[in-house]
Design a protein around this nucleic acid. Sequence first.
DNA 1: TTGAAAGCGCTAACAC
DNA 2: GTGTTAGCGCTTTCAA
Lengths: 345, 345
Amino acid sequence: MESNNQTVTIDDVAKLAGVSKATVGRVIGNYGSVSEKSRQKVMEAVKELDYVPNTIAQGLRSHSTKTIAVVLGSIKNSYCNELVYAIEKEAMKRGYNVLICNTHENLDKEIQHLRNIRSRQVDGVILIPVYTVGKVIPEKYRHLYENLNIPMVFVDRNIMGIEKDLVQSKNEEASYEATKYLISLGHKNIGVIGTVAYSTVQDRIKGYRRALQESGIAVNASLVVDAEYSEKHVGQKLAAKLLEEHPELTALYVLNNTLCGSVLLELKKRNLHTPDDLSLLTWDDDDLNELFDITTIVQYVEEIGRSAVKRLFELMADSQLKAEVQRIDTEMIIRKSCAEPKAFQ
Amino acid sequence: MESNNQTVTIDDVAKLAGVSKATVGRVIGNYGSVSEKSRQKVMEAVKELDYVPNTIAQGLRSHSTKTIAVVLGSIKNSYCNELVYAIEKEAMKRGYNVLICNTHENLDKEIQHLRNIRSRQVDGVILIPVYTVGKVIPEKYRHLYENLNIPMVFVDRNIMGIEKDLVQSKNEEASYEATKYLISLGHKNIGVIGTVAYSTVQDRIKGYRRALQESGIAVNASLVVDAEYSEKHVGQKLAAKLLEEHPELTALYVLNNTLCGSVLLELKKRNLHTPDDLSLLTWDDDDLNELFDITTIVQYVEEIGRSAVKRLFELMADSQLKAEVQRIDTEMIIRKSCAEPKAFQ
DNA sequence: TTGAAAGCGCTAACAC
DNA sequence: GTGTTAGCGCTTTCAA
């Protein structure tokens, strides 16, 4: 096995094997038909020269780069890195690599990435769009989402007015069930902390409202507070605000995985304990949650990732498919952070 | 702005602008010299046609794909995703994209990725090698690390016998200081939990030993226990083992970021509190650590990532540079988990 | 089953 | 400052 000649090409292999480069192409690309004899000779030459095909050249000719891009807020977020982990695993199985693009939850960066992705002839895109409810995608960028001619699947969040495949958790339903659970324990004044701008969070709030209404509890809008995504320790500040302005609160319901740790800091500061002083329920499981015995709605992120990749490959095989929404189940892990409110006992 | 014609090429732009495609190349690639007039015409045509250059074709011709690959155990690990975050940010600034490759701490996967990376003509590689101390890289794969002809920088861990650029924390020194700190509080029997197989962890253990020896404390090898990387809740099991077999322990020193949460579960189970029942010191800061007031050695992961990218670009510019090791400072955040041992008071 | 030739979209070399 | 030409390494006709 000779190695290290930077550029062993298909011609070298063809020469050594005594066949044409077309035949070599057939063997290594595994298409067309080749006699067993030729195949053998080619395989030997490949091994001898330690030949690896040039993916770039293949891509230029075949219009497939065997690459998918994942565009999301930040790989540091636990939802996102679990998602990427699952996506990369699935992609590798199919011989695809994954390009990672952080938008820092910034629309300009997202657009920059999408343009770049087009440049790179990526075969497919999985996107958690930055888009926040109410904002409108500037008209001149719509084509990046709609007519990119690259298969694209949204994960977690959608963009209003853009019909794309979407994979997300059953946010509304899970939130409804969780709220029902709190109500069943006797809670009526449940504070909510979440980043309201995202469609996902809005769905969760809808579920929360529906549960309250169904139980005949008046919905008090001031109990739902909005956490700006980027702010550090915003959860702590908002928890403080809620607890001060609403002494009637008996439970806190946290809708973002990034917020819960921060909320706990405030509870600690105030020497409040769950479930005795306050019940606490949150989204997304973390080391924290087990240690603090926090009742949690778990998203099956890996399944979301797998489904997104599966759908993406379907779209890559047939670009005429109509957009579909897939909603993945969630699970509520009941630990010890929720109990009957004191006043109720 | 016309959009969506899948394949607007440099020829189309040249035709519309009334110049040769070489001139268009000069404008969009920003090399050579072009008259202001031509530049204007080209720019207009580019906008008019919504032209984006084909990175694949550029790559084939210019032998640069504007891509770097990051190969590491798992993006789910917090050290790893902070690193990737920093790397991607730096790479983007320079117009490079990042391919993410998880090895699942498995040598075969790592080798598979490196071969694939060669196929893809990636411009540079940042690698946290799977390699564990004592194991030897099979001879036939050495060339993947040594003669790949692609600039490569190791992060965090090195491979014995392979001279590569390496960026890592000052593991030995930081560990020495941390142990000194525990000793200064009066601790003599300090249990250590870490995944011994990695060079990084071995350096930390060296620092621990040096501090003990310098203070005239006998090093008891059975106080250092080895956590297998992959096992779930291994930290908990090992903490239990240490506490049972060594009632003389007054402090626990945890060397891996993944282990600490697991160790805390065991302390909780045994109703042991820090620092009253036991002192606790750990590597890598986490939400957990602030909430539990755990004294922590913080690695500047983002700086490590930035340095690795910087070095990689130096190597890409000049492949003759000699391998260097960069050791990045750490910081010890003193919280409340360490105090004088009870027996000492 | 196989080979020759064309060409994917671009950049580099050279001429003017 | 600009255009012409060749060709990166491969796949895809097409013809044999």
